[in-house]
Nucleic acid binder design. Structure first.
Lengths: 205, 205
DNA sequence: AAATTGCTCCTGTTTTTCCATGATTTTTTA
DNA sequence: TAAAAAATCATGGAAAAACAGGAGCAATTT
């Protein structure tokens, strides 16, 4: 029985590229593609692929969210993340949400097939670049911030002062200042400029 | 005589995708691909394509730089920018450097062929999304900053204080402050937080 | 030759941030 | 439900940034 592959990606060229890469591969059957999260879920009502290649960025939802939905509803399906970026946080989140692997769009035909075979055996496959990115991720501290802190962080990035934030959130200025101070501590930075920079880098803003 | 197409992109799947999309297209001949700027320039020593599809992000140089080089050396070649993002600043820079068009990687077969035909006729082709992005670009102010200001901007984003920047650049603290003031004015923001944010958004950092 | 631009520096004042420390109340979680 | 975490508020002081306004000098453009 052939391995059934399904692709979720909103880029025609990628879909065509993968189709072309896999088309003469024995043991692999291409059963279709979706260009957004909604039609992916709709497709899964009718068909059950063995492996889904899933782009991180989709028009209606992120691949990260979609991955969680798919794995919750169909735990036996193996999901492989697919992206142009080797963005630490993306990769980690994708794996946290149940993905079995992650490859970049510059993967070769061989790597693609190897990744599919690996996850079918229940193992994880990370492209070399992705693995490096995850390691880097472990090195760099991704601080855990509270809901309120995140709220304040966003407003800081908007350029609001402690005072303005206080008015907006109906709390005291000194409270905002405390949140700000805690953010600086958690991110291990010493002023607002690098706070915004680091937070942006980590996709928090 | 067939139109000779050459691709510069570091993603196998995209290369395969485009090849697959163009393969049965009459009047179009695929003459090869390069996966970085250097081998692109090397290829052009021997061959002269009519149209180059060029990715924005390449491993050794940006497509933006490469585009300028190609157009300088071979003005008759038409360059079409290719990217996942409809990033205003990228598109504009690409066009400034002589590109004849810009399409996104979710372009259909029809759009791709139409874009190629359009630029061959000496006209410009922008994908709908790209056109919108450029319009947005015109709306949002992309401030022109000087070399020194950019230098200071980077150091501000690094989290350095005026004093530290002054020491690093061998200038007075008040001078740094002036640059900072000018940056705030040019970016039309009122503090460092939004300065860093806006600059990051516009890929200046 | 005149105007513009970029870089440099200055004096002040006001506002905001940064830092330390401590404490109370509310919410989450084990 | 008890313990932990989060959110709230406060005081006070030092450091940095923001704001205003002016000004000299060199290189470039008009």
């Amino acid at each position: 029985m052939d391995t059934k592959i399904f692709i979720v990606d909103d880029h025609y060229m990628i879909i065509e590229g993968i189709r072309s890469l896999l088309q003469n591969q024995s043991g692999i059957e291409w059963i279709g593609h979706a260009m957004n999260a909604t039609s992916c879920m709709a497709f899964l009502e009718q068909h059950e692929p063995d492996v889904i290649l899933m782009d991180i960025s989709l028009p209606d939802r992120t691949g990260i969210d979609l991955c969680l939905d798919v794995k919750t509803k169909y735990p036996s399906i193996h999901v492989i993340g697919l992206s142009t970026f080797n963005q630490h946080s993306f990769i980690q989140k994708m794996l946290d949400n149940g993905a079995s692997g992650y490859i970049l769009k510059n993967a070769t035909h061989e790597e693609l097939v190897f990744a599919i075979k690996t996850v079918l055996n229940g193992k994880k496959y990370l492209s070399l670049e992705a693995e490096l990115a995850v390691q880097q991720n472990e090195n760099s501290i991704i601080p855990v911030i509270t809901r309120r802190e995140k709220e304040v962080l966003l407003l800081i990035a908007e350029g609001m002062t402690n005072n303005e934030i206080a008015l907006k959130l109906f709390i005291s200025t000194t409270t905002v200042d405390t949140h700000r101070k805690n953010l600086l501590n958690k991110f291990e930075v010493k002023n607002t400029a690098s706070l915004v920079r680091v937070a942006t880098k980590n996709q928090l803003i």
